[in-house]
Every structure is written in structure tokens, then in C-alpha cells.
Design a protein around this nucleic acid. Structure first.
Lengths: 246, 246
DNA sequence: AATTTTGATATGTGATCACACTTGCGTTGA
DNA sequence: TCAACGCAAGTGTGATCACATATCAAAATT
């Protein structure tokens, strides 16, 4: 038997060989679509067809349709009456709804994390912030993808310390839903004078370090709100001129 | 064309015929499994096989596997390393986690609903409470299924008034996850001297009627907590004797 | 010329088949 | 007698096919 269980007295120990852990095609498709959605690769209101995605991902329709179905149940995609799927359109109401809920839930997560976070967690967080500083030091043309990824890693490193297996999937779902908005906002940020995101993150870390629950909630809310508020004002400004997502 | 769109000048208007809205087999399977889970038809730690469910539902494996996949993503089922699915086991930690999160989110929902709820909503809620009274008046052998269903209808009638399309799916997911626990608790309630659930519900309605947000949160939390606290004490009592779900 | 009809293309859904892996039981060996 | 081996049944996964429906464009009719 070649299972991961420890073989009692012979040939190989788990110290030498790590279990390889098979990953299904469906999981890869699901992860890839998740990544694309959080990074905002798909634009709001864009229609996604199963066969189209299958071709793009170089696989058959089977894993894609199951992944799309899963994404629809967590509201990362929207089911059209035709049974097709599209990435949900952006409306002001939906953005307000998302922001309000994210502050509630991620605020709770960081409150729990404040009381549980330990040294190694801080080390990992500092590593992420350091990576951010390096990126900014280079002053290269804004790498939005990298920025989005680092921002995500920073937040989830904190949330992961909250110790709640119920909150985590909810937060992931919320990020999935707000992914498209965020991308648009960050692009806008990059165009209109750079605001230092790392500064907001450092204030969050400070609150965590002093175990100040209320401050952590506050700073986190400020960090989350920023892109939403910016996008909100931008949408309100160009409301009666631009197309508001057909 | 036989679409649902209004035909301009001829035969039938939508006033006469309502769109039938085709329902796929997959949707029916999904709904049925949801219902079964919320009602607690499956016991914790029970393993569900795709072919087994397909046979029980008299369909092929295809709709079942997609429905099961969706239920796994919303944590209503759990993916085993064998790639099979089982209903998640009950642990004290998980129950506490679920309860805490439910109070947070459903509390927010009822807070929003308090400020938006209108006359017709109250009428529907009263109808549900009335139905409950009728059921109890008959003093028939406790119809646990009916009780679970009415309790669900009552809560979701309220939450539906919160106006948040982001909160609603989360609440549904939470109910899906706590379904098995609740069922066990309600059974225990029915055995050990009846506590009047309707009384708790009436207090919630009172708070809603007077638009007292804090009171509504409070009463709702009390209503939600009851079965969890009961089950918690019961599990702690029989901890070192019974099997704690392998 | 405008509208309706009709046909082709595309898409989602469900069923069936093939394959890899796991699991369990029966057999065989020491 | 007991352990190891091996075969068989069961299970999830992915591909392909068949079918109903939706969508769009061209063509025919009014």
C-alpha cells in the first residue's frame, strides 16, 4: 500500500518523502477563476460561457461547469435567466452593501485576531510589509497585479489568526464579490496621485501590536473603505454621462 | 417566439399567464439536499456518496455531483480526503463559532430590518405566528419538521426585510451549517419540558414594532442562543461517556 | 421598407462511458 | 493462526455525446 500512513517498520519514513496530495482539474479551474475574479481580470457585466472558459483553460467543459456553479453559489458570479453566467454588474447600492458587510465581518475577524495573534504571525506580516516597501522602492511602473496580491496576503494573514473557520469562507466570498470593484478603484488610484496604502497597513499593525481592539477595527475600516469611497464618488460624478454597466 | 417577454399585440398577456420558469434537475436536487440538511435529516459525520444520492433522488449522478460541489463550497458539506462528502461533525468549538457568527450577522440583519420593515411584512409575520399557535393548540404529538420549517419561515421573513443581498446568502449558509445541530437540540427540547418558542418570537416582533434596534438584536440573540446553549451543556455533560462523533 | 419567419449557430443540461484510485474481503503464504 | 498479498466492488473525476433551448442573422413576405 502506498498510502500516506506511516509504514510500520521499513523502507521509507515520512521524514524523507512528503505526501504529494493529488489536485483535481476542477480545483485548478476553480482556483484560477477565483484568482482572476479577485484580481479583477474580468470586467463587471462580462458574460462567461462554459465552453469559452474551457477553451481558454485548455480543458473540457466538465470541470469548468462545476467550478462556475460553485462560484455562482457564493455570489462571485451571477446566473442569467439563460442559465449563462456573468460577473455581477457594479451598482452604488451593491457597493455600499458590500462595504458595510465587509466592515462588519472583517472587523469582527480582526477583533478576534487581536486577542490571539502571536509572534510568528507578526513576523510573517512584517515580511509582507517589507516586500511592499521593496516594490515601492524600485519605483517601477505600477504593478497593479502585485499590489492586489500583496494587499490580499496582508489582510488574510491577519484574518487567519482569528481562529474562526466560519468567518474565513465568508471573508473569501466577500473579497470574491468585491474583487472587480477593487481592481477598478486601484487602477484609478494609480492614475490619480498615489496614496500610500502601506501607511494604512502599518497603522493596523500598530493597533494589533498594542492589542487595541477598537483601534484595529477602526484602522481596518478606514483601509477597506478607501477604494470604495473613491469609486463611489467617481461613479456619482460621471453618473449621467458614462454607461452604468448595461 | 415563446419567450417570457411581452408579445406586443396578440394572444396572451402576462396578466393571464405567469412565466413558468424552467427549473433544472440540478436545482431540484440542490434544493432537496438543502432542505434535508437544514431540517437535519442527515446526521453529523454521515458520509454521502454521489451515486447513493442519485439513486435516492431517482436521477443520474450529474446533477447530484454539481449540487454536492456547491454545498461543499458553502461549508454545508465537508470534503473528505477520499473526495467523498460528509456532513460536518459537531464539536463544541464549531458550535460556539457558529453561534457567535450567527448573532453577529443575523443581528445586523434584524437591525437593518427594524428600520425598513413595513405593514405587509408584519402581516406575513403575524400569519406565521398564528400558524404556530394553531399547531400548538392541537397538542398533537410534536411535529418537529413543521416546527423547524415555521421557525425558518419566521426568521427569514424578517431577514428578507433587511434589504441586503449580501447578508442573505450568508445567513442561508449559516443556517445550512447549523441545521444538524438545531435539529438535535429541538428534539431534545421536545423531550425535556416544552419551552415556548413562540414567546421568544413575539418578543422579537414587539421590538420590531417599536423600532427598538437594540432590543431586537437582544431578543434575537436570545432566541438563537437557546438551542445552542442547551446542546452545549448536554454535550459537556455526556462528554466522557458518549461517542463524540468520530 | 419594415416586419415576420426561418434557419444556423451556440450554449447549458443531463446521461453515459472510461479511467484512476480507494476500500474491503477473501485467498494464500509462512 | 496470523499476516501479507491480491483481486473485486465501489467511488469520484473527466470526456464525449445527445438534446432542448436561446440567440442572431438572413431571407421572404406583406
Amino acid at each position: 500500500m502506498r498510502t500516506a500512513g506511516p509504514d510500520k517498520g521499513s523502507e521509507l519514513t515520512s521524514a524523507q518523502l512528503a505526501p504529494v496530495g493529488r489536485e483535481t482539474v476542477q480545483d485548478r479551474v476553480y482556483s484560477e477563476l477565483r484568482r482572476a475574479l479577485i484580481s479583477g481580470l474580468f470586467e463587471p457585466s462580462q458574460v462567461l460561457t462554459i465552453r469559452g472558459l474551457a477553451d481558454a483553460l485548455a480543458t473540457s467543459t466538465m470541470p469548468v461547469r462545476e467550478a462556475v456553479g460553485r462560484l455562482i453559489t457564493e455570489k462571485a458570479l451571477e446566473a442569467l435567466p439563460n442559465r449563462s453566467a456573468r460577473v455581477p454588474p457594479i451598482t452604488i447600492e451593491r457597493m455600499d452593501d458590500l462595504l458595510r458587510t465587509r466592515i462588519l465581518i472583517e472587523g469582527q475577524a480582526i477583533a478576534l485576531a487581536t486577542e490571539r495573534i502571536t509572534g510568528p504571525d507578526f513576523a510573517r506580516i512584517e515580511a509582507i510589509l517589507h516586500e511592499w516597501d521593496e516594490m515601492r522602492a524600485l519605483k517601477q511602473p505600477k504593478d497593479v497585479d502585485r499590489e492586489v496580491t500583496l494587499n490580499q496576503k496582508f489582510h488574510f494573514e491577519i484574518y487567519g489568526s482569528c481562529g474562526s473557520t466560519v468567518l474565513m469562507p465568508m471573508i473569501e466570498s466577500l473579497w470574491l464579490q468585491s474583487g472587480p470593484c477593487i481592481r477598478v478603484a486601484i487602477f484609478a488610484f494609480s492614475e490619480a496621485g498615489e496614496v500610500d496604502t502601506a501607511q494604512y497597513h502599518r497603522r493596523i499593525v500598530s493597533a494589533l501590536a498594542t492589542k487595541d481592539v477598537d483601534a484595529a477595527r477602526e484602522e481596518l475600516a478606514a483601509d477597506i473603505s478607501r477604494p470604495f469611497e473613491y469609486l463611489r464618488s467617481k461613479m456619482l460624478a460621471g453618473e449621467n454621462s458614462g454607461r452604468t454597466s448595461k
